[in-house]
């Protein structure tokens, strides 16, 4: 596995018996994108703490927090974890199972409310 092999831009060779080429998408603009993401995450977090003690209704606050949390996780998974630039098939196999979690949340909260009402 010589270093010359890996001078190739846009990927690297595995260096084992197969010496396969693994494509990589290096973008020099990445660093700017990373810092932009950081500022967005920070601003959203500060905003969340700031509105937590306003007189907004509890319902509205909760849905705002849920929405902002999904926005934040979108940035972390999409930019920091590079899921945005992965293959479609990988994206779907990672994200689709979480539809079951949405179903689970709906069922569990309904159950909690029911138990509260009945006992």
């Amino acid at each position: 596995m010589s270093d010359q092999n890996n001078e190739h831009h846009g990927g690297y060779y595995t260096g084992d018996v197969h010496n396969q080429f693994v494509p990589e998408h290096y973008d020099p603009k990445n660093r700017k994108k990373i810092w932009t993401t950081f500022w967005i995450l920070l601003a959203v977090t500060i905003f969340e703490v700031a509105i937590a003690f306003t007189s907004l209704s509890k319902e509205l606050l909760m849905w705002t927090f849920v929405l902002l949390t999904i926005v934040k996780s979108g940035y972390i998974v999409g930019i920091f974890m590079h899921l945005k630039s992965e293959k479609k098939s990988l994206q779907y196999s990672i994200l689709l199972p979480f539809l079951l979690i949405v179903y689970f949340i709906a069922m569990a909260i309904a159950e909690g409310n029911y138990l509260h009402k009945m006992f």
Partner: peptide, 11 residues
């Protein structure tokens, strides 16, 4: 989710 369910139960 367990936290959420029980929090609703003992709200």
């Amino acid at each position: 989710i367990a936290y959420g369910a029980l929090r609703h139960r003992f709200t």
